[in-house]
Design a protein around this nucleic acid. Sequence first.
DNA 1: ACTACGATGAACT
DNA 2: GTTCATCGTAGTA
Length: 187
Amino acid sequence: MTKRLSSAFFARPVDLVARELIGVRFLVAGVGGLIVETESYDQSDPASHCFQGRRTPGNEAMYGPPGHAYVYRSYGMHWCINFTCGNGSAALIRALEPVAGVETMVARRGVEDVRKLCAGPGRLCQALGLSRMHDGASLLRTPFELRERGAPVSVAVGVRIGITRAVDLPRRFGMRGSRFLSRGIRE
DNA sequence: ACTACGATGAACT
DNA sequence: GTTCATCGTAGTA
């Protein structure tokens, strides 16, 4: 088994962390898979919840220590999870390649197609059972398990999805050739 | 109290 | 590729 990620992994520039998260094994209570798609956000980014140091009751976790979960509700109905990297920055986890607990994920999602279990931030959170109760929790402790990638991967960089501000920034990272992305990467 | 708006997903052509 | 249902959150008053 590969090594667990340390808090130092997250205490670095968010673009680097988001890139290096590709291929990392991410489990919640034993259910999950390999991270194949991320996006980065920080205070300088007009598309970020923390743009220019903006603070709301909901985004406090992004100003907390690196290596914690920032879970927010999207469109009033989906949950999305970010890994905090300090100082109002975080990497949004957008898609996983399902590896462990596939039956559990199928039951939670109500779909059979493995490619649709974790392809998208909302789907991924539903499949892993993530919600507001995980907001602010440390990623280094139970129920989370994050392990270094076992083999090198090729990372594609493109523009982000589903935002209306700063649409041209190259802050989306994906595992090149993966069939489990929420969408193809536009490089 | 009232309103506007999504870091989406599902269904559809 | 496209449309659109849906509702919590945050901003305004």
